[in-house]
């Protein structure tokens, strides 16, 4: 249960970090909060030549506003605890505020970071699904390519696979201002509070009951990436009855079973979460 030997580099600046990544590529792993990386090191699931610690890069730990777009800009090193308690996040990205307490346990939230979670691309994690539901923009930087932006919906490619190249550092994530009529719901089911989700749901919508104009219904813990239930969302916008939307959802989800839940159980729980989220949005349910 001890890591294999590695070279430890404490990045002194973003440029320094990008140099290290340009030089070592896949052989270097970035240490942000370490709440997934260090267990993987301890278990020797990964044995990198270089561990690049970016925790000294305080410029990547800020929550501020992008002057050009007005987007809420969260630096890669912002920790889960700060997202949970930050007033600006609560006002401008309430979905993140609602989701943060669901991430693991307090001691893990004190260290774990937004950027680390996004870069890891764990399909059962909360932040990737929230980023997709909010149509967030993930910012990547490299020494040779400068900075580029990738929509969250295109970022997550597969199980622990993302659009990030080995020489790129995920520097932050931008969340566009929500519209005046934007509403959100975050729901999760786990066997024990703080465990990885059996199934979770991050939902964002615009409009009002009976007149929805846009909706993103994003499940996590059910596939290799966050899963957008697009047919279900389209049905809900079109104003179909809930059982019809439920049927669409059941048709488009193909959950991967885990140690405790079969695919069938996960599909059942996903429908349950959708029903709760639909209520959260203020929609009347038949028979109530």
């Amino acid at each position: 249960m001890k890591p294999a030997p590695f070279a430890y580099v404490r990045a002194q600046s973003v440029e320094h970090a990008l140099d290290v990544l340009a030089e070592h590529g896949d052989d270097a792993l970035v240490l942000a909060g370490g709440q997934s990386l260090v267990p993987m090191l301890n278990l020797r699931l990964v044995q990198p030549a270089v561990v690049l610690d970016i925790n000294a890069l305080r410029g990547l730990a800020a929550i501020d506003t992008d002057p050009a777009s007005g987007a809420l800009r969260i630096g890669t090193l912002v920790r889960h605890r700060e997202i949970a308690s930050h007033q600006t996040v609560a006002a401008r990205a309430p979905l993140l505020h609602d989701a943060a307490p669901w991430i693991a346990h307090p001691a893990v939230r004190h260290r774990g970071t937004l950027g680390g979670s996004l870069a890891l691309a764990d399909p059962a994690a909360e932040w990737p699904a929230c980023a997709v539901a909010l149509d967030a923009t993930i910012r990547l930087a490299s020494r040779d390519g400068g900075e580029r932006s990738v929509p969250a919906s295109a970022f997550f490619q597969g199980l622990y696979q993302s659009e990030r190249r080995a020489d790129e550092l995920l520097v932050g994530c931008d969340f566009a201002p929500p519209g005046d009529d934007a509403v959100f719901s975050f729901r999760e089911l786990a066997r024990r509070h703080g465990d990885y989700a059996a199934v979770g749901l991050a939902l964002s919508a615009r409009g009002r009951p009976g007149a929805w104009t846009a909706m993103r219904v994003v499940f996590f813990g059910v596939g290799d990436t966050p899963v957008q239930a697009s047919a279900c969302a389209a049905a809900l916008i079109a104003g179909v009855d809930f059982p019809e939307a439920q049927a669409r959802l059941e048709g488009e989800l193909d959950p991967r079973p885990d140690l405790w839940f079969s695919a069938q159980a996960k599909r059942h729980l996903a429908v349950h979460l959708l029903r709760e989220a639909w209520r959260d949005l203020g929609n009347p349910m038949a028979g109530e």
């Binding site: 430890y8 404490r10 240490l31 370490g34 709440q35 260090v38 267990p39 301890n42 561990v51 610690d53 925790n55 605890r81 346990h105 307090p106 001691a107 893990v108 004190h110 260290r111």
Partner: peptide, 21 residues
């Protein structure tokens, strides 16, 4: 959680932080 210690005031997992950090 058996290795819980406080770092800069916050409870953290002692096994999930490198000593050099």
């Amino acid at each position: 959680g058996a290795c819980t210690v406080r770092v800069d005031g916050a409870a953290v997992r002692g096994c999930l932080m490198l000593a050099v950090q």
